[in-house]
């Protein structure tokens, strides 16, 4: 009988791995094995596992460390410890750290089978309990139907994450921005998302972003591509029946992401902003050629070649200047910028 539970067995003794694999495969589980902690963590990162069975004592990364890293990155994965003679106190310690159960060595096929069946049963009960009930609107907001198929387990995971990852201050940061004051007035009508010319490509639509800001999902919002897709056309803002300035909220979010650099991985817009800011601070005005070259050299050098003909044609029509123009009182501007910087921004 085949079921959809996948298990990783980790033990430095090949014979233990092999026999576990045989026992569990017969019971219908999908089983992988690893002979040490390193290999185990690699396989764990790659695969979509449900249960890890790991020997407590191993050279290198031991069972306890495997347990800790698994629980840290995917708390929903169950870990069962294999313990030898005299390691029962460690097994108890492991249970405290979140292990689901332990199997003392030596064990019979029946013993192993029983323990794993218990773990699987517990899992399915939890999933059933935590699956969204009808009317669970809040949960629904955080699903991404376009990219992630509906898995009850995943919703369960997200549910836990929502509880843990709430950042109450996030909402206040957005509300303290000019234009962000009315975010609490959002009634989730979706006019913004329907109006946005780019929402179809966003990780979360503007409507979802509003809900997530209110819920305090700081990391999800700031690492999403949505904020960098906003082209600042203000159509959402002029159409919002609650007069929420969504474009301004997007600017606030861009600023917050800029401050916390870990959110800037995928998007190219932050890089463009960085160079633009440096040029304006240096000359007081933009220098288009310098900005274009600097940005593309770093972001996409091939684009320079691709656009070179267009650049040449613009240059021949005197629409490109080789040299920047500096304003006369640049020191005044720089003093002002420094002071504004010292004031620490708006939040």
């Amino acid at each position: 009988m085949k079921n959809n539970v996948s298990i990783l067995v980790v033990d430095d003794e090949p014979i233990v791995c092999d026999s576990c694999k045989k026992i569990l495969t017969e019971k219908g589980f999908t089983v992988e094995t690893a002979l040490n902690g390193e290999e185990a963590l690699k396989k764990f990162k790659k695969g979509d596992l449900d249960i890890v069975i790991v020997d407590l004592k191993m050279p290198g990364i031991d069972g306890m460390e495997v347990l800790q890293s698994v629980k840290k990155s995917k708390p929903e994965v169950d870990v069962v410890m294999i313990t030898g003679y005299g390691t029962i106190p460690s097994a108890v310690e492991a249970m405290k750290l979140g292990a689901a159960d332990y199997v003392p060595k030596p064990f019979t096929p029946k013993e192993l089978g029983q323990i794993i069946s218990q773990v699987v049963e517990k899992r399915s009960k939890l999933v059933a309990e935590k699956a969204p009930k009808k009317g669970a609107i809040l949960l629904d907001v955080f699903k991404k139907p376009s990219k992630v198929a509906y898995h009850p387990e995943r919703v369960w995971v997200k549910d836990i994450k929502i509880e843990e990852a709430l950042d109450e201050n996030f909402l206040n940061e957005v509300r303290s921005t000019p234009g962000g004051e009315r975010v609490m007035d959002c009634m989730q009508c979706g006019t913004c998302s329907g109006s946005c010319p780019l929402s179809y490509r966003m990780d979360y639509t503007p409507r979802e972003i509003n809900a997530m800001v209110r819920a305090g999902l700081r990391d999800e919002v700031l690492s999403s591509n949505s904020i960098w897709m906003c082209s600042s056309c203000y159509l959402c803002t002029v159409r919002c029946p609650r007069q929420i300035k969504i474009t301004d909220i997007m600017y606030a979010l861009k600023n917050l992401a800029m401050k916390d650099k870990r959110f800037l991985k995928k998007a190219k817009s932050p890089l463009l902003s960085k160079y633009f800011v440096a040029i304006v601070n240096r000359y007081g005005r933009n220098h288009e050629l310098e900005l274009t070259l600097k940005f593309f050299l770093r972001a996409n050098p091939r684009a320079i070649l691709k656009h070179s003909l267009m650049g040449l044609r613009l240059f021949l029509r005197k629409r490109f200047s080789l040299f920047p123009k500096r304003i006369k009182n640049i020191n005044q501007l720089r003093t002002m910028v420094r002071k504004a910087e010292a004031l620490g921004g708006l939040r």
């Binding site: 921005t177 600017y251 600023n255 800029m258 902003s273 633009f276 800011v277 304006v280 910087e341 708006l346």
Partner: peptide, 9 residues
């Protein structure tokens, strides 16, 4: 572009 970087400035 600057507004995306730092609103106050």
């Amino acid at each position: 572009v600057y507004l995306s970087y730092e609103e106050l400035i």
